[in-house]
């Protein structure tokens, strides 16, 4: 953040930054955001949320780390190739609709069932979640790919 703003020519802002606080806080907040993102993602079928929001929030959690640390440190923390993430997302989003043929139903007909699990009570299993994972991964991967690429560019 500091270097970013400084290079943009905003020196006044940079003096007010304190990296130690930011870095410590962002480590904690990162997990909060990620958990919130997963919560939104999995609950999306019944309450507000879903793959798009989940993916974007996941991306913004990583962005927070990118601001607090630099790109190389974040890459060490999470050695993920974002292009691979996009590919995986597209595979999920593309394959799940065709799975409906296995059930003998038209393209894109999702399957669902309810399973009785002890302690957790009734659970619903739904292939729409698999499709949403595709959305989640693609959105998150594309966002992070764009951001890291721009960050890599020399000023």
């Amino acid at each position: 953040m500091k270097s970013t703003l400084m290079r943009a020519g905003y020196k006044k802002v940079s003096r007010q930054m304190n990296d130690v606080f930011l870095q410590f806080a962002s480590k904690v907040i990162f997990f909060l955001i990620v958990m919130f993102a997963f919560n939104l993602f999995f609950a999306g079928h019944y309450t507000p949320g879903g793959g798009f929001v989940g993916g974007l929030l996941g991306a913004s959690a990583v962005v927070l780390l990118l601001i607090a640390f630099d790109r190389k440190t974040v890459h060490k923390m999470m050695p993920i190739d974002y292009r691979f993430m996009i590919t995986l997302g597209l595979v999920f989003a593309g394959v799940v609709p065709t799975l409906s043929f296995l059930f003998g139903t038209p393209f894109f007909q999702h399957q669902f069932t309810y399973v009785e699990v002890p302690i957790l009570q009734e659970l619903s299993l739904h292939t729409a979640v698999l499709f949403d994972i595709g959305v989640f991964l693609t959105v998150m991967g594309a966002c992070l790919l764009i951001i890291t690429l721009v960050a890599e560019e020399k000023a």
């Binding site: 798009f52 974007l56 959105v139 594309a142 764009i146 690429l149 721009v150």
Partner: peptide
Amino acid sequence: VIAFALTAIILV
């Protein structure tokens, strides 16, 4: 979401 993708593309 599409508008975001568009903004990102033209920014880059």
